[in-house]
Structure formats: C-alpha cells, structure tokens
C-alpha cells in the first residue's frame, strides 16, 4: 500500500476513471450508506481521542493502518460481521475511518477489471 496520493499521476491500472466512493458519514448529511462484507476500510490520518472509543473500535483502528475488507476486520477481531459493521460505521461517522464501497450489481464490472483479475490469477 503506497502511502502517497501521487497515484493520481500514474496511469490507473484498473482503468477506473472515477474517484473512489469515500463514505463520509457524519461529515455531511449524506444518505445512509450500507457497508458490505467487502467494503474496504482504512484508518484516516486523524487525531484520535482513544478514551472516546470502545476497546473493540480501538482494535479495529489499529488493524486498519492498511486497507482491509469488513470481512477481514471481522475475522481478525473475532466479532460477527453485523456487529463489526456497526462499529465501523461509527468510526466512519467520527471521521476516523474511510471506506470504499465495492462494486454492486448496479454497476457491472468492466472488461478492464476482468482483465486485471485474469492477469492477477495467472501470476499466482
């Protein structure tokens, strides 16, 4: 995970021309966004008042120094997915975590993504 935003400059390998869907609960009055099992989350570089968080949330924040799916977080902290979603939603609301929504059936996966997946599997 490159710790830089210079990825703007290099060509996007997956070819997706859109900005990632950063969920910003609480920051704006945006629609309720549902977290999916494979929504990818990462800790935001924000100041955290650790005393204001549940221990489980602190554990989640520490895990999320690198991008992880909701399912991975759930497995690592050993808390059911449904509960982890609530904990993460709250962290997103407080601005401590950013999330990227996965593809949904409403936005079919493009050929460029399929090709990238194919290449990735072949490299295994």
């Amino acid at each position: 995970m490159p710790d830089e935003s210079s990825s703007n400059a290099k060509p996007n390998e997956t070819g997706s021309p859109v900005r990632p869907y950063i969920l910003t609960w609480g920051r704006q009055n945006c629609d309720v966004v549902r977290l999916d099992m494979i929504s990818v989350v990462i800790a935001a570089r924000s100041d955290v008042d650790e005393t204001a968080l549940e221990p489980e949330q602190l554990a989640i924040l520490r895990l999320c120094g690198r991008p992880l799916s909701v399912a991975e977080v759930s497995a690592h902290v050993d808390i059911p997915v449904a509960v982890v979603k609530v904990l993460i939603s709250d962290l997103i609301g407080r601005g401590h975590v950013l999330a990227r929504a996965p593809y949904t059936s409403q936005s079919p996966v493009g050929r460029d993504i399929l090709q990238a997946v194919l290449d990735g599997i072949r490299r295994l």
């Binding site: 990825s7 996007n12 900005r19 990632p20 950063i22 494979i38 989350v41 570089r45 999330a99």
Partner: peptide
C-alpha cells in the same frame, strides 16, 4: 485523477477496490 479531487484532503489514502468470487 483517479483517487483524489480538489475537494478531498491532500493526503487522502489510496483505497483499493474489492471484487469477489
């Protein structure tokens, strides 16, 4: 400009897209 726009914080992290099988 795939992962940032002028509204976003300058250090917005790169969050990968996930797909599943």
């Amino acid at each position: 400009m795939a992962f940032a726009d002028s509204d976003g914080p300058p250090d917005e992290p790169l969050i990968p897209q996930a797909v599943k099988i």
